[in-house]
Design a protein around this nucleic acid. Structure first.
Lengths: 336, 336
DNA sequence: CTGAAAGCGCTTACAG
DNA sequence: CTGAAAGCGCTTACAG
C-alpha cells in the first residue's frame, strides 16, 4: 500500500509552501484566489486526503460528535439519533454513536473511549443508575455536553438539558379523553420514580384532580410486551376502566395488540392515547392517537443547538422544552 | 481549562522514561510488572487520558470502525447496527455510524469523512445507485471493508460480502404455505430488479414452479405504507388470492393493519409470512409468521469477522451466507 | 527490561 | 498574501 500524499506533496505539486496549503484547507480568506485554485488542483491530482490525526495533535477540533443513546433499538430514540447524525453530517461533522442499552457501566466505558478520540462534543440521552457521576470525567475533559430527553445530572448549568414539554402533553391527552366522556382513565407504563415517568404522568394526575377524578397508574417497562400484558389483564379484572394514556406509543401498540386479541374494540369500547407519535402509530389499526413529540425535528434542533455552541460559542439555555401537540386518531375518536 | 497531562508527565510522576509509559499503554510484555504498576498508578493519579490523535500520527490504528447504513430507521437495520456497535465496543473499538437514507451522494460524503478520520475498517450496508463506484476511494485508502446485507460492488474479493441465505428462506415460506393448502400465493414488496428483491423472491418463484403453481409479484417499497395499500386493494380486485409472502416484516405488518381494517381475518381467510422476524412480529396481532434472520446475531458475527480481519489478518470469505429458519405463528397457522 | 532520539503530518505565530 | 520554523504527543527502532 503506497503512502498517502501529505500536505508537503501538495505544496510541491502546486508550487507553494505547506503553510499555504494548510490555509487553503481551512478556507482561510488570506489566500489569493488563483493560489487557492492551484492548490485545489494539486489536491485533486494527487488524491490527497486530509489527516485529522495530525491536525488534532496541533489542537484543531476533531469534528467528531459523541452521541450516546440509552436504547437505540427503540424507534423513538432511533429517529432522534438518525436525525441528529444527519444534521451533523450536513455540516461536515461525523458522529460516533453508542448504544448503552440502559447500562451505566457500558455508558462509562463509551464515554471514556470517546474522550480518547477527542470528540468535540457530547449529546447524551443517558442511562439511569451507576455509582459515580457519569459526567464527571467529561467535565474534567472540558467537552461541551448536552443532556437530551432525560436529565440525570442536575447540573444543567454545566450540561444543558433539552426535552419536550411532556407535562403539557399529559394535560392535552387527559382533557381530550374527558371531553369524549371517559371517566375511568388510567395511566399505563413507565418505570416508577423515573423523572421522565413523573413528567409524563404529572399532566394526567393534575388534570384528573382538576376534574375531581381519581388517577390510577400501572407502572411497568415502556415496551410492547408490557402493554400487551396489561391489556390482557383488563379483560378479567378492570372492566370499568374506559380509557388509557400510555407512557409511550410502544406500550400503546402493545395494548392495541392485546385488546384486539381479547376482542375489545379500541376507539369504541375503550380509548387509548399514546405518547411520542412514532411513525408506526399512524399506520396501526386502529390508528393511534398520540401526543406528538416531533422527534426528527427535535434531533435536528438539538444538533443545531450543539453546533451553535461549539462553532459560535452560543451556549444553550440550562433547560429547553420543545412544544408538543395531540394527534387525534381512531383509537380515541372511534372509527372515522 | 488546564492542559491535559501527557505521557511525559506520567513518565516523570512514575520515575520512568516516556518510552516505558508508551509500552505500558500498549500492554507490551516487555515491561516489568512492578514498573507497570507504578505507571498505572501515575496514570490514575494524574487523570491521564490517552491521546489517539498523536498515536494515529505515528501510524497506530485509530480503533474507529465506520458503520454505514442505508436506512437506520428500519428496525431490521437498527438491530443490526446496534448489535455490531456493541460488539465492537466490547473489544474497545468505537463506531462511527452514519445513516445514508438510501442516498448515494450522502454515502459518498460520509465515506470521505470517515476516511479522513482514519477509520480502521468499514462495515457497509450500502445504498444503491450513484454515478461512480462508491467503494473506489476506500480501495485507494486501503481500508478493510465488508459489504453486509446488500452487495452493490461485485468485487467481493476486495469487499467481502456477508448476508443471510434469503433464497432458502423463500423456499421455506412457500412450502409452508403450500403445505397449509394455499395455492394462490403472491409475493408482496421489494423494489424491482434489486439484488435483494431477486434473492428473496427466488426461493418463492422456484418453489411455486416446482409445484406447477404460478408466481405473481407485487413490487413496491419495503414499507408499512406499501403493505397497507396492497392489503386495502385485495378487497376489491383479487379475492382469489389466499396467501402472501412479504419482502419484509414491515410490509407484512402494514398488510396486517390494512386487512384488519377491511375485516379480513389473517390466519383464517388469508395467510401471511413475513421476512426478517423483527421483535415486533412476535407481538403483533395476529402474531406474524416470518423467515427468521437472527439480525442481532448477524451483527455480532459480522463485527467479529471484521475484528478477526483487522486484528489477526484473517480475511473473511468472499461471500458468506448465514442460515435462516421459519418461525410459524398465527398469521399462517391460524388462531392457536 | 529501559532510555534517548527521530519523526509522523499537520497548525500557528512570526517574519517578510 | 506567502514562507521558514517550532512543536503538538505519541511510537518505534536502536542502544544499552
Amino acid at each position: 500500500m503506497k503512502k498517502r500524499p501529505t500536505i508537503l506533496d501538495v505544496a510541491r505539486h502546486a508550487g507553494v509552501s505547506k503553510s499555504t496549503v494548510s490555509l487553503v484547507l481551512q478556507n482561510s480568506t488570506l489566500v489569493k484566489e488563483t493560489t487557492r485554485e492551484d492548490v485545489a488542483k494539486a489536491i485533486a491530482d494527487l488524491g490527497y486526503v486530509y489527516n485529522r490525526s495530525a491536525a488534532g495533535l496541533r489542537g484543531a477540533a476533531s469534528g467528531l460528535i459523541g452521541l450516546i443513546i440509552n436504547d437505540l433499538r427503540n424507534p423513538f430514540f432511533t429517529e432522534f439519533a438518525a436525525s441528529a447524525q444527519m444534521t451533523f453530517a450536513q455540516k461536515g461533522y461525523s458522529t460516533v454513536i453508542a448504544n448503552t442499552d440502559e447500562d451505566p457501566d457500558i455508558q462509562a466505558q463509551v464515554i471514556d473511549s470517546m474522550i480518547e478520540h477527542d470528540v468535540s462534543a457530547f449529546v447524551i440521552s443517558p442511562s439511569y443508575g451507576g455509582d459515580e457521576q457519569p459526567f464527571d470525567r467529561i467535565r474534567r475533559a472540558g467537552i461541551p455536553t448536552m443532556q437530551v430527553l432525560r436529565q440525570v445530572d442536575e447540573r444543567t448549568d454545566l450540561f444543558p438539558f433539552a426535552s419536550h414539554d411532556y407535562k403539557a402533553g399529559g394535560v392535552l391527552a387527559t382533557e381530550h379523553l374527558i371531553d369524549l366522556g371517559c371517566r375511568n382513565i388510567v395511566f399505563v407504563g413507565g418505570l416508577e420514580d423515573r423523572p421522565i415517568t413523573l413528567e409524563r404522568m404529572s399532566g394526567y394526575v393534575e388534570t384528573m384532580g382538576a376534574h375531581a377524578l381519581v388517577p390510577s397508574v400501572f407502572h411497568g417497562r415502556p415496551s410492547r410486551v408490557f402493554g400487551r400484558e396489561i391489556a390482557l389483564k383488563f379483560l378479567d379484572s378492570h372492566r370499568q376502566i374506559d380509557a388509557a394514556i400510555c407512557f409511550s406509543d410502544l406500550v400503546a401498540l402493545g395494548m392495541l395488540s392485546g385488546l384486539a386479541e381479547v376482542g375489545i374494540r379500541v376507539g369504541e369500547d375503550f380509548k387509548i392515547v399514546g405518547f411520542d407519535d412514532i411513525e408506526e402509530s399512524s399506520l396501526a389499526y386502529p390508528r393511534l392517537s398520540s401526543v406528538r413529540c416531533d422527534t426528527a425535528l427535535f434531533g435536528k434542533n438539538a444538533a443545531e443547538a450543539m453546533l451553535a455552541w461549539i462553532v459560535d460559542g452560543e451556549r444553550p439555555p440550562d433547560t429547553k422544552r420543545y412544544g408538543v401537540e395531540l394527534t387525534k386518531r381512531q383509537s380515541s375518536l372511534g372509527a372515522g
